[in-house]
Design a protein around this nucleic acid. Structure first.
Lengths: 339, 339
DNA sequence: TAAAAAATTGGGACCGCTCCCAATATTAGA
DNA sequence: TCTAATATTGGGAGCGGTCCCAATTTTTTA
């Protein structure tokens, strides 16, 4: 079924049908109703490829995720992000195209996408974006949004959780509970989220005029086994608490602590980051910093769609709040005592 | 940069450039080389929307996943599937479009996609596909592939793991170890994977002239908390082993067993299904049935692309083998004794 | 009631490719 | 060396919409 046929059946020209399809107000109400009825009756749907070619807008947004990330799909992070983004896109009648790229392909792939004019915009959740690519993106005029702030460039739109504050609060919580050898397993040092959380950790010390012992800082990789390995390296330093930069790593850290005969939280208090669904069921239930990844995905999609439709405004920099969720892995908490 | 400009720079017509782009053999080698050089130099990339409109093929395949599934993204199943599919599509220069739909939207959405001619084919991993949709898909002539066999229709192409054999072997293993009250936590009864695994469980009994006690069969929902709840319901029946239809549920089941003071495997042996990455790190390490979900995704993409390019052959029915991975949650195993 | 303004509608010109068929160049056969 | 066959190439006609501008209708205004 073509627009021309719908036009014939409605007794109008294809232009008028096109107007109805695109919600152009310049159509007489009675005409619009008649056409809509025909469209409904014959179940007409405009060919989106043709629309895309003619209008220059495809209503497709691209989502680029790094596949190198070992935690890519064992950690619910990306799945949640995807869920948030697709939910909004579905509702707004946008389609989502997905690319999982490893670093070698990534540059080439993004270039390709940019010059392909298949996309109206893209969400880039990769953390290893080098400047040439950003340059290409900017020059191509393709709207894009980073998930996770860019370490240096401030002229780009991004969305991020408040990693610094979240980490800071977690560590303040541990210090307040009287822990004095608070260690941390950080994220990768080349990921901004890892860096920001470590800085939040450090800041919590500085606020009290203290400095963390460098021996208590170990880099992790956001994976479960990475958490285990890092914790094993940390144990000889006798920490009495550890802030782990992701819940998935915390799972590994808990395992390492158990195997070493440490009691949690008596010997070592543990705080994670993310509040993944299983955090509440861990042994013991994990105190953690909650971030709404799905919410971030939703906001990302909404923001990008807005940019696409309203032209590029000044860069959007959106930072979502986090929330410390206190469970038993960090020690006695008032709620429990009350019961 | 348009094809016409490339043609001008190469001193040929756009037709010849088009031939080179599409690897048409009817081009003189010297001409082809010259054009390729120009393309490289000016970094020309054909507009895929225009190609799609002109050729009727977009090189985009759709992937439809059910979002209702509570385990959607806590279980690594779908992420892995996505990873497998995108890997192959990337390599073959296809793009993947993703839809996460809930049952209410699903029907409407698929209809929309079908009549939109944006897709060359689709992979449908949803389990609640009703006949009208399948009819629409078939009638539209859009190639599609189901992940998970259809319960009744045998004329459709699908890809599935050998759920029946995998479950059967798991239960045979438990029975051979001398367990006599082998329970099971099944998948949802409306998912074919859940049904096939339960039938494998039952068959293992029948092979030995036995029948499972119906009280030892409890339906689960493939989620961690579902596994916990189901196990709690099972414990009063005094099982000495349990076959859990997914590792994620097994996590919950282990938790329930621990809380009830049961030793694993001494009191209750446990076998899962999937072999998720954390299975080897559980306490105790989980015996489970391994299936390569990523491999399934890859094969799905390859098969669909083949169907798209070579026309619809007789329906493809591909069943991938599973493998029993014996760890300690199911009891003593020879490997361990040997050490 | 006629002219002016505003609201609708129609139709040609693309969007940037592919594809078919006719035209031209090249090679082989006699 | 000339003709037939074969290999290359060119160009028109779409693919199915959108969009602009001119034409037509309807509504206002004087």
């Amino acid at each position: 079924m073509l627009i021309e046929e719908v036009a014939k059946l409605s007794g109008v020209s294809r232009s008028t049908v096109s107007r109805v399809i695109n919600n152009d107000p310049n159509v007489k109400e009675s005409t619009r109703a008649r056409i809509k009825e025909v469209i409904r009756k014959v179940n007409y749907r405009p060919n989106s490829v043709a629309r895309g070619l003619a209008s220059g807008r495809t209503r497709i947004i691209g989502l680029v995720l790094p596949t190198a990330q070992s935690s890519l799909f064992t950690d619910p992070y990306y799945p949640r992000l995807i869920q948030g983004i697709t939910a909004v896109c579905n509702a707004r009648d946008y389609s989502v195209m997905l690319w999982l790229t490893n670093p070698e392909q990534e540059q080439n792939k993004i270039h390709q996408l940019v010059s392909d004019s298949l996309l109206d915009g893209m969400v880039i959740a990769s953390y290893l974006i080098d400047d040439p690519i950003l340059e290409a993106l900017t020059k191509a005029g393709l709207p894009f949004l980073l998930i996770g702030r860019h370490p240096t460039r401030t002229d780009l739109s991004y969305l991020d959780a408040d990693n610094f504050q979240g980490a800071r609060e977690a560590v303040v919580h541990l210090l307040r509970l009287g822990r004095c050898r608070v260690a941390t397993i950080t994220g990768p040092n080349n990921m901004i989220a890892g860096i920001d959380r470590r800085e939040g950790y450090e800041h919590a010390f500085h606020e009290r005029g203290m400095s963390p012992d460098p021996a208590l800082i170990v880099e992790g990789d956001f994976s479960e086994s990475g958490g285990y390995t890092s914790m094993m390296r940390l144990i000889p330093q006798n920490p009495d608490a550890v802030f782990v930069a992701s819940d998935t790593m915390a799972v590994g850290a808990l395992r390492a602590l158990r195997e070493s005969g440490k009691r949690i939280p008596e010997d070592v208090a543990v705080v994670g980051f993310d509040d993944i669904p299983s955090a509440a069921h861990m042994d013991p239930p994990l105190t953690t910093v909650r971030q709404s990844i799905q919410g971030m995905g939703q906001l990302a999609a909404e923001t990008l769609i807005q940019i696409v439709n309203e032209g590029t405004a000044p860069p959007h920099r959106l930072v979502l709040p986090t929330e410390l969720v206190i469970r038993s892995s960090s020690g006695l908490c008032m709620d429990l005592i009350g019961q």
